[in-house]
Every structure is written in C-alpha cells, then in structure tokens.
Design a protein around this nucleic acid. Structure first.
Length: 417
RNA sequence: GGAGGGAUGGCCGAGCGGACGAAGGCGCUGGUCUUGAAAACCAGUGGGCCCUUUACGGGUCUCGUGGGUUCGAAUCCCACUCCCUCCGCCA
C-alpha cells in the first residue's frame, strides 16, 4: 500500500507511476471518493462527540430530566449509527481500490512491458566454451544420478523432481555456505513457518495480485509460501523498532511452493521451473533514507555469492512491466545456462520501500516521531537454479562436474562423477 | 481430539455498565539534590485516523479480533483468534 498523501497532494505523480506500469485506473474518481468519505467521517465523528457529551450529562440527571435526555440522546445515537455506516461503506469502497494500487515506481526503472525490456547493466565472468557438446542439466542429472523427474511425475505430476545423491550434498552445502556468508554480514539466520494466513500474504503484497500462484490448503485457512520473504517480512508486524537497531537483517531458509499456473508450456525440461524448491532469502528492515543503499548492499551480497560459485552472469535492471506490485525497483541476476545457451534468472533483489511496511505496520521510533521502515528482499541462494547453473557451467568433457573451490569444504568433494 | 483457565498501555497489574485512554507498580525520559553515580523527590511517558492549518489546539477510534445489547461498554451477550494447564496422540 502506498501513502495516501500522494493521492491528495500530488495525484499527477500517482497517475504517472500507474501509467508507466501500463495500468488504467481512475485516480480522479478515487480522489473524489476519498474526499467524500472524509466529509462523511467528519460528520459522523461530530455526532459521536455530541452523543458522548449527552451521555455524560445523563449520568448526572435524575427523574424526568433524565428520561428526556435519554430520548434525545437516542436520536443522536441513531443519526450517528447511520452516518457511521455510510462512512464505513465509503471506506470499504475506497480501500478495495486503494489496495490494488502498486508501489510508486523508482525513476531509474526502465520502461517496457516485458522481461525483454529489462536493461542489462553489468556482466561478470566468462561464458564458458566447450570443446564438446555441452549437456543440459537434465541429461547431466540423469547420468550422474542427481535428478529424477520421471519418477517424481509418477507420484506428484509435472514440475517436480527428486534430488538425489550428490545433489543432496550440494543442496545442503550451498545452504550452509550461504548462511555462513550472510551471518558474517549481520543477517540473523531464520527457519520460518511456511504455512501462513492470508494476512501475511496481503501484508507482503502477494494478495490481492498473485493469488493464482499460491497453494491454499483445503481444510485450513492457510497458504503455502512461495518465498521466505513472506514470513520474514511478518516477523516485525505491528512493531515499532528502535531507530538505532536499523537495519535489521534476516536470512531465511524455506522450501518455496509455486503453482506456476500461468507458465504452462514454459521451461518444461528438467527442474528449471518446478512447484517446489528450496531457497535462502535475505530480508531487510531499514531506515527510509537508506533503502537505496540497502538495496545495493543486498545486491552486492548476492553478487559475492554468485561470484564465489564461479558462475558467469549478467545483471538486469528489471523493466517496469515485470516489477511486482510491491516493488519500486528490482535487480535480477541472470546466470549463463550452457544447456539453454542463454542467461536465465537466478536471483532477484527488490526494494519495496514502505509498501509492505505500511500494510504490516512496521515502524521505527525517531526523534521526529514514528515512521514506516522500508523493506527489501533478495535471493541469496535459490538452490534449484544454482544447482543447475553449477552443473551446466562446470561440466567436463568426461561428463563429470567440478565443484567450485569455495564450495568444496561445504560439500565434501571437489568433483561429481 | 477431550476438559478447564486466560488475553488490559514497553512490562507487571487493578478495574467487571456512567466523566476510563484506563488506578498502582516497574521501566524509560527530563529535572532537583550530588564532585560523579546511586538513592530520594518532582514532572513527563501508547498507537491510528481526521479537523483547524500547524498550535502550549481540538475531535474520533483503539483494553486480543469482529459483531451485538444500551442514551452510554474495558466492563453484559455472540462468534472467532491466540496463549496457558491437564488427558490422549505424535516427529
């Protein structure tokens, strides 16, 4: 949710941001609705004040005087209830639209409606050249006994996989590797709940927006999270943090569940795009003046991890059309995948400014009063994708895979054969 | 799953229909005292929305959440959520 002040004081800026996202919303009408509901609310509150005054008077009266006062007070009470109902109704109308307004887009975000409009801002590493035909992760995974999608399909359907043998040691090695690096940088490690209430998804901006992507339990009002961002963001819900404690940083491990309902036919090979994968996610609550720097910090942390894994990558500043509703700005790291002969997303780092903080009511106390924090999130290790990138980039002519030096102590071997 | 108990401000805790945004204590902040600190004493100390147009101002909401009764609800009623204790089950 964005600051309502912008609707009242600078509706043109709001219109511009919405237009950049390619959305159509009647901001003028929304402004009028806001005006109208405030008028009604003021009338209701005035009546309420009158009612409270007369209520206090009644307590002092006796006999007929008291009876008359009660009759007159009950008229005020009726008027108040009517006005209040009207005010509540207008609020509900307003809120329904207001919660759908996405975050104000940062000026540095490129225009464009799709992934292809994102702007490459950096490249790192050498795209590997092979003196043999490189295999894709599916072939490698099968040959080396690391990935089995056929058997997984038998019991769970498409977009599932068994990780087996060396892949398991790689997974847990990667997770520990990430936590060690993040702990060094001041992130508190967390294993959060993965089943959450609707409120947590609303607070992070996934509702109402991406319901079709999220698994809901049939018998309980709980949802499976698609990222640890959700439970990490909720840690300080309804809290007022101390200014000197900012930034507060967490690193959360979670299995991520995604329905991929809109992705039919895309990335159907192997386990590149699956319904379930594990991830270590960074999350930051920071001072609003510092969120831009914090965004760079999270992003630089991502880079240091990918670099240590010796994966060639490029960085894109994600185009406005591909930004989530809660993000003001987003950087993706895309690793080279020899099996696909192109760069593919492996991390994502967003500055959601005060959008989530407003919904989750996460504030900090400062000398000039309480204010909303800014929140940011970034991928440290998306285990599946990193696993595949490692396999494809570090494969050898003999079909084996070399483990990057930094990771060897964590997995216990230097090559998969 | 069964049986009980409970949810009040940063914390503890009183209040159980009428001036309650809420006693008291603790904590915190400022002051007095002190060479300094402690103690003691004095004062202040939740959050949201809105109006006036920013002030030493005012209104309203908020006592787990949402409804209801009433002129009036922290107090009464209903539903829900969470926590605790005991039994059963269980990694």
């Amino acid at each position: 949710m964005i600051d309502i002040a912008i609707l009242r004081t600078d509706p043109e800026a709001l219109k511009a941001s919405i237009a950049r996202r390619g959305l159509e919303m009647d901001i003028d009408a929304l402004g009028e609705l806001d005006e109208a509901r405030r008028m009604i609310r003021i009338e209701a509150e005035d009546l309420r004040a009158e009612q409270k005054q007369s209520g206090k008077a009644i307590a002092q009266l006796e006999g007929d005087e008291r009876q008359e006062a009660i009759v007159s007070a009950s008229r005020i009470a009726d008027d108040y209830k009517a006005k209040l109902a009207k005010a509540d109704e207008l609020d509900a109308q307003f809120d329904e639209q207001w919660i759908r307004i996405p975050n104000i887009v940062d000026d540095s975000v490129p225009d464009g409606a799709t992934e292809d409009d994102s702007v490459e801002i950096k490249r790192w590493g050498e795209v590997p050249t092979f003196d043999f035909e490189p295999r894709d992760h599916r072939q490698l995974g099968e040959t080396l006994g690391m990935i089995d999608t056929e058997r997984a399909a038998r019991l769970s359907g498409s977009r599932f996989g068994y990780l087996m043998g060396p892949a398991v040691f790689l997974e847990f090695g990667l997770v520990r590797f990430a936590f060690d690096r993040l702990a060094e940088r001041g992130f508190t490690p967390v294993v959060p709940p993965l089943l959450v209430r609707e409120q947590a998804l609303f607070g992070t901006g996934f509702f109402p927006d991406t319901e079709q992507q999220i698994y809901k339990l049939a018998d309980d009002d709980l949802y499976l999270v698609g990222t640890a961002e959700v439970p990490l963001a909720g840690i300080h819900m309804d809290e007022i943090l101390a200014e000197e404690d900012l930034p507060v940083r967490y690193a959360g491990f979670s299995t991520c569940f995604r329905r991929e309902s809109g992705a039919a036919g895309r990335d159907t090979t192997g386990i590149f795009r699956v319904h379930q994968f594990d991830k270590v996610e960074m999350f930051s609550f920071c001072h609003p003046d510092r969120s831009s720097d914090e965004h760079e910090f999270l992003f630089e942390t991502e880079e240091s991890i990918i670099q240590a894994l010796e994966l060639p990558y490029r960085v894109v500043n994600v185009a406005v059309g591909d930004l989530g509703g809660s993000a003001a700005k987003k950087y993706d790291i895309e690793a080279w995948f020899p099996g696909q002969d192109r760069f593919r997303e492996i991390t994502s780092c967003s500055n959601t400014t005060d959008f989530q903080a407003r919904r989750l009511k996460v504030r900090f106390k400062s000398e000039s009063g309480n204010a909303l924090v800014h929140t940011l999130n970034g991928t440290a290790i998306a285990v599946g994708r990193i696993l595949l990138a490692l396999m494809e980039n570090h494969q050898q002519a003999d079909g084996s895979i070399l483990i990057p030096e930094a990771l060897q102590p964590y997995v216990g071997f230097d090559r998969i054969t």
